[in-house]
Design a binder for these strands. Structure first.
Lengths: 344, 344
DNA sequence: GTGAAAGCGCTAACAC
DNA sequence: GTGTTAGCGCTTTCAC
């Protein structure tokens, strides 16, 4: 049968208590016994039993703290949904979730919120935050204090996070291009690209993937302009309309940002030009409506629900196994959706 | 805090043992107390704790039996993968999986296998089987004996199963059509459809969804022929080559079956006509290779891994909650994939 | 038909 | 630094 603490206790000659302490890095155990026991556990193939663990820890919940820049960001609704699902699924097993929502990407506010979460006694963290030195420092500190951090949706390079859960932005761009190519290979492509912020890693990666793929396929294309909508509907509408006016040759639009899509739609409607071929990213309510109205042809989605769910699930897994250093990233799929996907 | 058996015991004046028995339909409890306690549980919002349950049941595992017609069917590899994942995830919580694989869809063999699974002491069943009266009878019997059944991939109409986990075939066909329309709206479509068996529910639904959607979009199309590949590569190659020879006008192919795709590829290669627009279904190794080689343009996939995983997960959930009658079906998404999805 | 109690695997509080 | 033990929520003997 499966190996339990008791087995390890018998096999090693020390008590279950000590075994438990050794396996959980409590530093109240002598270095040798700890090492010896961990080795033994390895050899015998000990796997902790979540049920036992959960039950005993009932009083002392495993709290995971979450930071989401989700205020006024409809894209995060599905991520939150996934988090809720994971929460109710793992409540049983001693997991508790505390969610802090902020508006936007202000580094200092993020740092402050992370501190709060820590003060609050969170045993692990899931963050959707900025790739910035201050944040990097934060995460490395957390790691030192043995608080594992998972990054959601937006990666932070070169920091000691335990895993990243999110999309492959570059591939997303590639797929948009491939789709365009398959659909419109018979005519020269005059493309307008709309991004949120040119400086946004994800958007930039999408644009790069998009361009590279069109080249790779030896497509007859020209990127007429790349405009910034500032993740804002009004601005997006404005810059899109301007661009369309000054480039009447445009015959397709690649919207590399999820935000501002409503402005994009408004611009296209205002120009009453639905002849464009339009590919957008990220499924939110507005996008769905625009697809249903045949204004957007395809959306390339990134499973936000799954991202929320998996972030929590991975953290739960991490906390119920003897400390692994680093886990595998969970990269969600780029899901192509069109009108029929949204009909009931 | 959360309500436990002990709370119910105090509140009702009977012992925990009795409460437990009442809540688990053991018939060793007087009808009134049982009813009273169930009512109380309802009112107080009692939710059983999986950890406690799992721990106490360690000796008495929750065995789920699985029937898959997976021998010589590469499509099932991913379903099995999902099952494995669920198995290792829920081992902790007292779940055990026993898998019986058969070759093909022989009704009597399926019935026999289901019996075996039952004899073996399975507490719940997940079946991928045929929509046939004998099977229906089987499932209804199981229901009477309080063994919940979940159907995977292939539904059985009008039987007392607890849920269905699988794709929406009709929608799959629609999406193939929509994709075709988006990609080739500028030319009259001369379509060859290849199915496995015309009698196969799923394939028929795909063809219907496909046709209906082309009509709805007022597409200029003609379905030149519908041929049967008998889920077999050799036959598929043969009938496809014949059809292409007698209908030289064909400019696109809709492969509504996952099996036989290798024969389809062979036929297209043999005719050295890669100018066709080809849409296939279900991702298996061969399909992937044909997409990579630009012989197939799009594949419409149905998340087999998720199907396997969710079937087990739902059964686990069902067994750890007080008996619900029927659960919600889990319908997987129709995932559009193209070359870039398969590149590392 | 019902109560009492043991025990599942694990952690933490308390001894020593 | 380590052993002992109570107890987490639940099911299941074993009495009565």
């Amino acid at each position: 049968m499966t190996v339990t603490l008791k087995d390890l206790s018998k096999a090693s000659g020390v008590s279950v208590g000590t075994v438990s302490r050794a396996l959980n890095d409590k530093n109240e155990v002598s270095a040798d016994t700890a090492k010896r026991i961990r080795q033994l556990a390895q050899e015998l193939g000990y796997v902790p039993n979540r049920a036992g663990k959960a039950l005993s820890a009932q009083k002392n919940l495993n709290t995971v703290g979450i930071l989401l820049p989700s205020i006024n960001g409809p894209f995060f609704d599905d991520i939150k949904q996934g988090i809720k699902e994971a929460e109710s699924e793992f409540k049983d097993l001693g997991l508790e979730v505390i969610l802090r929502e902020v508006e936007g990407w202000d580094v200092d506010e993020h740092v402050r919120t992370i501190e709060e979460l820590k003060e609050h006694g969170c045993k692990s963290l899931a963050l959707c935050t900025v790739d910035h030195d201050k944040i990097r420092a934060c995460i490395d500190d957390l790691d030192k204090e043995n608080i594992p951090v998972i990054l959601i949706n937006n990666n932070v390079q070169n920091c000691k996070n335990v895993a990243f859960v999110g999309p492959d932005y570059h591939r997303s761009g590639e797929i948009a291009a491939a789709l365009l190519y398959k659909s419109r290979s018979y005519e020269p492509l005059k493309i307008l690209i709309v991004v949120g912020l040119k400086s946004h890693h994800g958007h930039a990666a999408r644009v790069e993937g998009f361009t590279r793929e069109l080249q790779r396929r030896h497509c007859d294309f020209e990127i007429v302009d790349v405009v910034e909508g500032m993740d804002n509907d009004i601005v997006t509408q404005q810059v899109t309309m301007d661009a369309l006016k000054s480039h009447s040759e445009v015959n397709c639009i690649y919207m590399a940002s999820g935000s501002g899509v409503s402005g994009l739609g408004a611009a296209i409607i205002a120009e009453s030009l639905t002849k464009f071929f339009v590919i957008a990213c990220d499924e939110i309510y507005t996008t769905r409506e625009l697809v249903k109205s045949d204004i957007i042809d395809f959306v390339i989605c990134q499973e936000p629900r799954t991202q929320g769910y998996q972030a929590i699930k991975l953290l739960h897994e991490y906390m119920s196994k003897p400390r692994l250093g680093k886990m595998e990233d969970y990269i969600v799929d780029n899901i192509i959706k069109l009108k029929n996907h949204f009909e009931s």
